[in-house]
Write a protein that binds this DNA or RNA. Structure first.
Length: 608
DNA sequence: CTAGGGTTAG
């Protein structure tokens, strides 16, 4: 080591553990006698220091030290690569690997290759993974289980399908549980839960051995296919293997019950858990968020009273729950707590807040959050767009979409659904059609049934009913209830009785599951004077509605929340609602709006 | 110096 190196080491050493510092300084002051002076020992100590820097997140220091190292062996290079990936700087890790291959006179070993493959996964690049794959073959490293498993993981997470991953998997001789779990996770994380479960079963048959990792990912697969039956079987197997004391495994079981909407099982599972961490609570809170927002909020207070502090995940769920209930004052309170806890700039939380303010009718506040965000992603833009679109600002929503594209954010399918809905409500038919063409042509997004539904609605609302019908006939999907429903509305609004009759037949053949469909049908019959058919629809609807919990609406009046279902009598509060409705009707008359009484719900008693 | 699992947003 030269003198310059010694000085540098001392400056670096101010922030490192005493033991490393001492050994490094000793090594620098007293070179080992066993080494001849012109053949320096490999920089083992400096590499140890490098690793220590990365563990503490001291990236700049690590880089400076590495740059100053007079001699850098494979281990030093590999430490840089794995150090960067462990700090989530996968791009830099890749650059170091390229530098090593280009300029350094060292050959990569199995450590280097598997660390580099992890970096490829981090930057989501299967092509770079394939490059490393070639190198693996060239270096004769394909026998290394670590390398093969890392390669399998890159292909499983970054490729469009599982072909390459499964090819790698089948070539591994002496597969271990990591190989199996990586394959299962690959299928499961891309939404192919059945295939994931299939591989899991094969693993149990062939391996005869299981591990907690594979169990929790298999449980996740059950959740993704909403199979509570498989989930319960796995739960039983987990108890049998004594894994019901493994916290991550039980968290995944809890999540599975929530996602399968088995809230009673979720509740029981939660109570039986001997150990709970913040993920347990977050899972429960997120699970209740969709079906029982009140319970979600009360779980949150219980979580806090048990001394666990909520994090971004907790608040995201709570904000979503509040958004579903549209209780603005509560949302503002939670927003305050988020700021107090210093979680203000979190991207996902800000996105949830935009949605909450927009759903509570406060589009301006939503926009304020959006404007203040240090970084925005596609979800931020889309949420804001939906906020505009669903409050009658169709033109603003469309402008917003344009601005987003100009900003360099690439829209996905959901963003197109949002902009098409906005066009539909703003009456911008031609623009909407152009967006559809651009979506397919410029963005290479395959339209699905939902997108075709938007298009049918767009054409139908604008009165281009025949075109809408041709579209339904020519699209590569079987139209569902919502497509026919949108079309039916158009037939009625623009007076196309023949196509309307056809649509009615099609809708009824699908045995509708949405109550609103029966309302539309009933009203169409009623408008036509077919009272008997109309009543039949009401009857079918009531029979269906009684099977499931009624959809509740919430309203906030003077800091009081009222929740009610259609047809509810809210007692004395009803007077207040009636008053508001009367005022609204006055406004409508002033604006010379002629109400379409055909759309009024004909609440006929059965048999009339 | 190396590989696999659990919770967020449109």
């Amino acid at each position: 080591m030269n003198a310059r190196k010694l000085v540098l080491s001392q400056t670096h050493c101010t922030q490192i553990p005493q033991t490393i510092r001492n050994s490094l300084l000793c090594a620098a002051v007293d070179p080992p006698h066993s080494n001849p002076p012109f053949l320096p020992k490999p920089p083992i100590l400096a590499t140890g220091l490098l690793k220590s820097y990365f563990e503490r997140g001291l990236i700049r220091e690590a880089r400076t030290l590495f740059d100053e190292m007079p001699e850098r062996d494979v281990v030093a290079w590999t430490t840089m690569i794995s150090g960067y990936t462990s700090c989530n700087l996968h791009g830099r890790a890749w650059v170091v690997f390229c530098e090593m291959m280009r300029y350094a006179d060292v050959r990569p070993n199995e450590f280097t290759l598997s660390s580099t493959l992890k970096a490829c996964k981090g930057i989501n690049s299967s092509s770079r993974g394939a490059l490393v794959h070639a190198l693996v073959l060239k270096e004769g490293m394909s026998g290394s289980l670590y390398v093969s498993n890392a390669l399998l993981d890159v292909y499983a997470t970054c490729c469009v399908n599982m072909d390459k991953a499964s090819a790698v998997f089948h070539e591994i001789r002496g597969k271990n549980d990591v190989s199996w779990t990586t394959l299962i996770a690959g299928y499961t994380h891309r939404g192919d839960g059945y295939m994931g479960l299939n591989v899991f079963r094969r693993m149990l048959l062939e391996e005869g051995e299981s591990n907690p990792f594979s169990f929790s990912i298999a449980v996740r697969a059950c959740a993704s296919v909403h199979s509570c039956t498989y989930g319960k079987q796995l739960h039983a197997a987990i108890v049998k293997h004594g894994l019901n004391y493994n916290l991550p495994v039980m968290n995944s079981i809890l999540d599975m019950y929530c996602r399968c909407s088995s809230l009673n099982d979720a509740k029981q599972c939660f109570h039986e858990m001997t150990q709970r961490d913040s993920i347990t609570w977050n899972t429960l809170i997120a699970g209740y968020e969709k079906s029982d927002p009140y319970e979600s909020i009360s779980s949150y207070s219980r979580m806090e009273s048990e001394g666990l502090s909520p994090n971004c995940f907790t608040f995201s769920s709570i904000i979503a729950a509040v958004a579903n209930l549209a209780i603005l004052s509560c949302g503002e309170q939670i927003h305050g707590r988020i700021i107090k806890r210093g979680l203000g700039g979190n991207l996902e939380l800000d996105n949830a807040l935009i949605d909450m303010y927009a759903k509570s009718g406060n589009v301006a506040s939503a926009r304020r959050i959006f404007d203040k965000m240090p970084t925005k992603n596609l979800v931020s833009w889309t949420t804001m767009m939906i906020g505009y679109g669903s409050h009658g600002y169709g033109n603003e929503a469309v402008d917003f979409f344009e601005e987003m594209v100009k900003f360099g954010v690439r829209p996905d399918r959901i963003a197109f659904v949002a902009v098409l809905n906005a066009c539909s409500h703003a009456g911008l038919v031609d623009k909407g059609v152009r967006y559809f063409i651009s979506m397919v042509g410029d963005y290479n997004i395959a339209p699905d049934l939902e997108i075709f539904g938007c298009l049918v609605d767009l054409l139908g609302r604008a009165g281009r009913v025949e075109e809408a019908f041709q579209l339904i006939e020519s699209m590569p999907f079987d139209p569902d209830e919502s497509v026919w429903g949108a079309f039916l509305g158009a037939c009625k609004a623009h007076n196309h009785p023949d196509l309307g009759t056809l649509a009615i037949r099609k809708v009824l053949a699908l045995k509708p599951k949405i109550a609103a469909t029966y309302v539309v049908l009933s009203n169409i019959y009623a408008a036509d004077g077919k009272w008997c058919d109309s009543a039949k629809m009401r009857k079918l609807m009531r029979r269906m509605a009684s099977k499931k919990e009624a959809g509740r609406s919430s309203v906030e009046i003077k800091n009081q929340n009222y929740s009610f279902v259609a047809g509810d009598k809210m007692g004395s509060h009803m007077d207040c609602v009636d008053e508001v409705v009367k005022v609204l009707v006055e406004h409508m008359r002033d604006a010379r709006y002629i109400p379409d009484l055909d759309f009024f719900i004909h609440d006929l008693e059965d048999g009339t």
